[in-house]
């Protein structure tokens, strides 16, 4: 949030100097009412069971009460610059962090407004117009706070999403050895350039260490295969082949197969088998293994 952005938002909600002046006039009232209004507010809040979980102990409650009182007074102090905004953003972020749903956060404001309205009515008895104007100014400011809170919420959420995307990308892709010279590489999640390189490097190292001759790459867990993903896959297969290993790809879903053909991607250089089981069987055949079902249903391998 920058200085310009703030002044732009102020303009959008039509928050003017006039509003500031009106709010400043409220300052003595705010100081007087902060205590009872906030106490009342939390009494109301805590009457809802789902809210109690957010204030597990006395200390937390006292802390937020104190903060709220400061906020209440601050609403009428006429300083709504960057510092104010940053504090509001921080408050929003804190609420997001404790998983307070945004609807609850906004609903709390409704109670606030009611409380304040009734106090204003009492304070401005006989001056209904003035009370109404002051209340409107206050509402504008509260709107700004709500906007900021939603901003902070969505910012945190976006951060979380980015972090998760990062985590998914960096999920290690295990290379598993299931028979002598046979590796399985199950890929789960999206494959982008960075991950493809990482997977390929890891696979090549594993091929050398395990002296693998056949690798089954299972892409059942890859949700989307587009042109790029397909090309990455082809590159991985090519690289493995340069080390003398051959790759069997399995788990291409019907949907993905159709997409690939529609996109016109040439995957004829991939040796594909329907599912992982088929792929492993094919690999065993290449390596010269024969699986024989023994008595009692147990099976054993025979190197051919």
């Amino acid at each position: 949030m920058t200085e310009e952005e703030l002044s732009h938002r102020m303009k959008v909600i039509q928050f003017t100097e006039e509003d500031v002046a009106r709010l400043k006039k409220l300052s003595p009232y705010a100081r007087e009412y902060a205590e009872p209004v906030i106490e009342e507010f939390y009494r109301h809040l805590l009457s809802f069971e789902e809210m109690r979980a957010f204030f597990p102990d006395r200390r937390t409650l006292d802390y937020v009460k104190r903060k709220q009182k400061e906020y209440f007074v601050r609403l009428t102090e006429g300083d709504y610059g960057m510092k104010y905004v940053e504090d509001r953003l921080l408050i929003g972020a804190v609420h997001e962090k404790i998983d307070l749903p945004i609807k609850t956060y906004l609903a709390m404001y409704a109670y606030y407004e009611n409380q304040v309205a009734s106090r204003l009515r009492a304070a401005f008895a006989g001056h209904a117009d003035e009370a109404f104007d002051v209340f409107l100014s206050l509402i504008k400011l509260i709107r700004l706070d709500m906007i900021l809170a939603i901003d902070a919420y969505s910012l945190r959420r976006e951060q979380t999403i980015r972090q998760q995307e990062e985590a998914i990308r960096e999920l290690s892709t295990p290379v598993l050895r299931i028979r002598d010279r046979l590796l399985i590489l199950p890929i789960i999640g999206l494959i982008d350039r960075k991950r493809a390189t990482q997977i390929t490097a890891q696979l090549l190292t594993s091929i050398r260490n395990a002296r693998a001759r056949v690798i089954v790459i299972d892409i059942t867990g890859v949700p989307v295969v587009d042109t790029d993903t397909a090309n990455h896959l082809v590159q991985t297969v090519e690289a493995a082949r340069l080390l003398g290993a051959q790759v069997i790809t399995t788990g291409l879903s019907s949907e993905i197969a159709q997409t690939i053909v529609r996109l016109g991607v040439d995957l004829s250089r991939l040796n594909t088998v329907g599912d992982l089981q088929g792929g492993v069987e094919e690999a065993e055949r290449i390596l010269g293994y024969r699986v024989i079902r023994g008595e009692g249903g147990s099976s054993y391998l025979e190197a051919g």
């Binding site: 390189t197 390929t200 050398r208 690289a239 493995a240 340069l242």
Partner: peptide, 9 residues
């Protein structure tokens, strides 16, 4: 492996 990777790239 590094050579293979570079070649493919």
């Amino acid at each position: 492996p590094e050579v293979a990777l570079a070649m493919v790239r």
